[in-house]
Simulated scan of single mutants.
Amino acid sequence: MAQSCYDSFDFDPHSKYCGTCKYDPPRFFHRLGMSDRGYTLTRYLYATSNINLPNFFQKSTTNNNNIWSPHANWMGYVAVATDDHELRRLGRRDVVVAWRGTVTYLEWIHDLKDILRPAHFRDDPNVKIESGFFDLYTSKEKEQNCAFCSFSAREQVLAELRRIIHRFRGEDLSITITGHSLGAALALLSAYDVAEVKLNSGIPITVFSFGGPRVGNLRFKERCDELGVKVLRVVNVHDRVPTVPGIITNEKFQYQKYLEDAMSFPWSYAHVGVELGLDHTHSPFLKNTMDLRCAHNLEAHLHLLDGYHAKGEKFWLASKRDVALVNKSCDFLKPEYGVPPNWWQDEHKGMVRSGEGRWVVPERPRMEAHPADTAHHFEQVIKYAK
């Protein structure tokens, strides 16, 4: 579900739809070959691109009067388990929030200012979050008259979760939040927020994070633990992104020293949850490369996760996940497997032939910006929190 955020996102700067999802919600899982997963997509999530992370957002280079939005980027979605078989398998109705990261471009990590600011989602000013992540999660652009930015990403996800929880009240529910890279930061931040405002109220909340950076200070980590937010951080030990912001090392002595410093200095960053460290050199399918984008790639993480069984155990693919997927957006597979690099793209890059015989970018259905009851549900979240 985290990978689907990449496979459905329009990265093409020549497209007037750059920065949005390529598929409309009713056909989202079908177009991605995920119709059998048992989930129904209920809402798309957006964030304003007018914040200080310029290398993360995608914008169209075409005429501004012709693009879908000059200020917004599609950031992910909310989905709920609706299939009877899936409900029986899980023993509950699961709600998923999936956040988009960035496929290969790592320049955004250089824009992190290493500035911690109070979250203020509750009353403790000592809970602090990296300022870029906070702005991405909480900013909106009402004055710009952008329908997609009239609510912040925070307001959107809290309102949608409240609507779903209210709709299925009385049932056993769970909330699962996932993301890769910067999307992993949003996943942790939103999970903390949901728990802090008590929106989950007895509903277990879990984060599956892939290649995520550190999000907040030690008090943020402690508060997540106190609130019962469960986090599994899947990382490639050769990936640099999980080491930012700040400096960390795998050496036990220095790591202990880091923790002691974090206890002494509340502005120090700290990871949350349990780490599952994977090593791409253990896979017989992957070549040696110094390309940091390969080490950070999400499909590579999923490949390593499929082949990992225990520390020191032999690497073998449990689900027979197609190794060709690794090269969707990078060049990581050994040449003998005959898979071209960066092969994932729409046929003809989305161009179709019109009735007049001309090749054009087809019009897409106008996406709903926000459901009409968004403000109501968010107000109810804040009212309950207070």
Rank of each mutant, 00 (worst) to 15 (best):
A2T: 15
S4H: 09
C5D: 08
F9G: 02
D12M: 10
S15L: 02
Y17M: 00
C18N: 03
G19H: 04
P25T: 08
R27T: 13
F28P: 05
F29Q: 04
R31A: 13
G33D: 05
D36S: 13
G38S: 04
T40N: 08
L41A: 02
L41F: 00
Y44K: 03
A47E: 03
T48L: 05
S49N: 10
S60C: 05
S60P: 06
T61N: 14
I67V: 13
N73T: 08
W74V: 10
Y77N: 03
A79Q: 01
A79C: 13
A81R: 00
A81E: 04
T82I: 10
D83M: 02
R88Q: 15
L90A: 08
L90R: 14
R92M: 01
V95M: 03
G101C: 07
T102N: 09
V103T: 12
D111L: 02
K113A: 15
P118T: 12
P118I: 12
F121M: 14
D123M: 12
K128T: 10
Y137Q: 03
Q144V: 08
N145P: 04
C149R: 03
C149S: 11
C149A: 07
R154N: 11
A159N: 11
A159D: 14
R163C: 00
R167E: 13
R167K: 15
R169W: 11
E171D: 14
S174V: 04
T176V: 14
S181H: 04
A185P: 13
L186H: 01
A187Y: 12
A187L: 11
L189Q: 09
E196H: 05
V197H: 05
V197C: 08
N200H: 03
N200C: 01
S201Y: 10
G202R: 01
F208W: 07
G212K: 00
G212M: 05
P213C: 03
G216N: 02
G216E: 01
G216A: 04
N217M: 04
K221G: 06
E222M: 07
V229M: 05
K230R: 06
V231M: 01
R233H: 14
H238Y: 11
R240V: 15
R240Q: 14
V241Y: 08
T243E: 09
P245H: 09
G246T: 15
G246P: 15
I248Y: 11
Q256H: 13
L259E: 12
L259H: 14
F265V: 14
W267V: 11
Y269Q: 02
H271S: 12
G273P: 12
T281W: 06
S283N: 03
L304T: 07
G307S: 09
G307T: 09
H309V: 09
E313A: 15
F315N: 02
W316L: 11
W316N: 13
V323Q: 11
V323C: 08
N327I: 01
F332R: 01
F332N: 00
L333Y: 02
P335D: 08
G338N: 13
W359L: 15
V361P: 08
H370M: 07
P371I: 08
A375V: 10
H377P: 09
Q380N: 11
Q380S: 11
A385I: 04
